[in-house]
Amino acid sequence: MMYHQDKARRDMKTLLEIKNLKTHFFTHEGTVKAVDGVSFKINQGETLGIVGESGSGKSVTALSVMRLIPHPPGKIVGGEIYFEGKDLLKLEDKEIRKIRGKKISMIFQEPMTSLDPVFTVGYEIGEVIQLHQGLNKKEARKKAIEILKIVGIPDVEKRIDNYPHELSGGMRQRVMIAMALSCNPTLLIADEPTTALDVTIQAQILRLINELKGEFGASVMLITHDLGIIAEMCDNVAVMYAGHIVEYTDIYTLFNHPLHPYTKGLSKSIPRMNIEVEHLDTIPGIVPNLLDLPSGCPFHPRCDFSFKRCVEEMPELIEIENSHLVKCHLVKKRIRSKKVEWKNW
């Protein structure tokens, strides 16, 4: 069954392909390499999860796709982002604005402050629809009502004329999702969409995103630091650490056979219902300062298995099996010893 799924997935068309993306921030203290050579693909209809600690470059990757990196101090210094065959990094401002909100939409972390307080929610959704679909005010309002119904806002005719402060956090996130989906985007980027919500609302919102993904046929790039969410939502996962993807694999392998020590550490530090433990495992140390990265593999100071080569040399991202990529010397060594074929990606 797994095999068929994999095959089906490979046959799907690539929607977004990021190649060797480098986004750096030039600050007074030095250059912060927030994203340093990230590559991945998202197929049509796929949900890709990006996990990592704060400062690992998840959000910067997302903002780079949208070309919303604040400049100065940030700049995309290298790489290509192909979306539907076009390199987004080569587009004029005007062209990228037509893609934002229409083809690629984004849901942000903070629903409480993501809506303009001086406008009603109906107006704000209507604005996006008018902007991208050339509808007039009346039609836009009709469409806004429609889409608010889809995202499950009760009593829409009344709610549409509410100001954001009159809605609860979950409600507002639904409005944000409605706004993001109002122009039928092909890619939805959700940047920690549930971090600011309480747990019951979290589940509702995630279910909603999943349902709508099916309904609208969009691909989703889900950024989170919660492996639980990843488990529920994603097809494939990219684990990020200090601006690099350290492991990329499908969801089953991630939980069953993680290869990178960091990923192993992450899955060990999730509380589990069925196993009783006294202390939850943690990964020792903290995320390195991006201004002063350790030499070689950035994870080596926190890694239990690090050896000499880790300190000296940055490992390459290598493909172990079909679409399972790992960036670790250890894995390479082990595979070599087993004489399994591997190839550069």
Binding site: M66, L68, R97, K98, I99, R100, G101, K102, S105, M106, F108, Q109, E110, T113, S114, L115, D116, P117, V118, E127, V128, L131, H132, M176, M179, A180
Partner: peptide, 22 residues
């Protein structure tokens, strides 16, 4: 710096629109 301005950028509003409307 507010999030809703970021959101406006993310939905493809132009600078002029963001300044005058938001």
């Amino acid at each position: 710096e507010m999030e809703y301005i970021e959101v406006q950028k993310a939905i493809g509003s132009s600078d002029a629109r963001i300044i005058f409307r938001h």
